[in-house]
């Protein structure tokens, strides 16, 4: 797998949200992406997954240029994402939610095999007792888990998780934690966007810091957290806050 993001610029009117962001992911790894609010993390995600067109720059996936492709085409090439706000298909059942990406990715897939796979994923996510329930009767945290499970049914190589821990009950957070580990062990690359520093530093093998539309750091987490510009921009303040709370 190889995802190359090359000099992505995005302007909204007079505002420059991204000022030439470049990075490459070419092996299964867990990449943390952090940055203060408004740094451009979600904009970057939307551009990589085709929901927004970049003002300039290129994105390549496995040697194929994907910027300008429509979101579904990018998803079918193995690049999946979740959203910051839960977006389960509320009037479909949990199982139907799971089948949508499976059949979209591979229309000729055997439906029974897919259902079996979905059941295994649901069991791991502790949602198996709700297989035939409508998604709208699930709790907010369960809907988030469902979205994560649904994403696996797409069978992606690279996934972008946008704030998977936000607003989730601690017990379900642990499940999400395990989920991320397992997906990583299954040989997929993950870009994890989160404000939860503890999980970012525990999970990440590589850390990118986005500040005012610029990638100001990209490297091993331990090095990145010691870089002065990162501390200035973001981490320093945050760690102080954390100690205060503790």
């Amino acid at each position: 797998m190889k995802l190359e993001v090359k000099r992505i610029v995005k302007n909204f009117g007079g505002l420059q949200a991204l000022k030439g962001v470049s990075f490459t992911i070419d092996s299964p790894q867990l990449v943390g992406l952090i940055g203060p609010n408004g740094a451009g993390k979600t904009t970057l995600t939307n551009i990589i997954t085709g929901m927004l067109a970049p003002t300039s720059g290129e994105i390549w996936l496995n040697g194929e240029r994907i910027d300008g492709m429509r979101p579904y085409a990018i998803a079918r090439r193995g690049l999946g994402r979740t959203f910051q706000v839960t977006r389960a298909f509320r009037r479909l059942t949990v199982m139907e939610n799971m089948l949508v990406p499976a059949l979209a990715r591979n229309p000729r897939a055997d439906r029974h095999a897919m259902e079996q796979k979905a059941r295994e994923i649901l069991a791991f996510l502790t949602l198996d007792h709700l297989t035939n329930e409508y998604a709208r009767s699930l709790s907010g945290g369960q809907q988030k888990l469902l979205e994560l499970g649904r994403l696996l049914m797409l069978d992606p190589q690279i996934i972008i998780l946008d704030e998977p821990f936000a607003g989730v009950h601690p017990r379900l957070q642990r499940t999400i934690y395990d989920y991320i580990r397992r997906v990583r062990e299954a040989g997929k690359a993950i870009i994890l966007i989160s404000h939860d520093m503890e999980s970012i530093f525990t999970l990440s093998e590589r850390l990118m810091v986005l500040n005012f539309g610029e990638l100001i750091a990209d490297g091993p987490p331990d090095e990145v957290r010691r870089m002065p510009e990162v501390i200035d921009a973001y981490l320093g303040r945050d760690e102080e806050e954390e100690t205060e709370h503790a």
Partner: peptide, 19 residues
């Protein structure tokens, strides 16, 4: 399934590969 997924949330459906 696609019909209903698109009805519920177009962006989420697209992100899961639905045309």
């Amino acid at each position: 399934l696609y019909f209903q997924a698109v009805r519920e949330d177009e962006d989420a459906a697209a992100a899961l590969g639905v045309n």
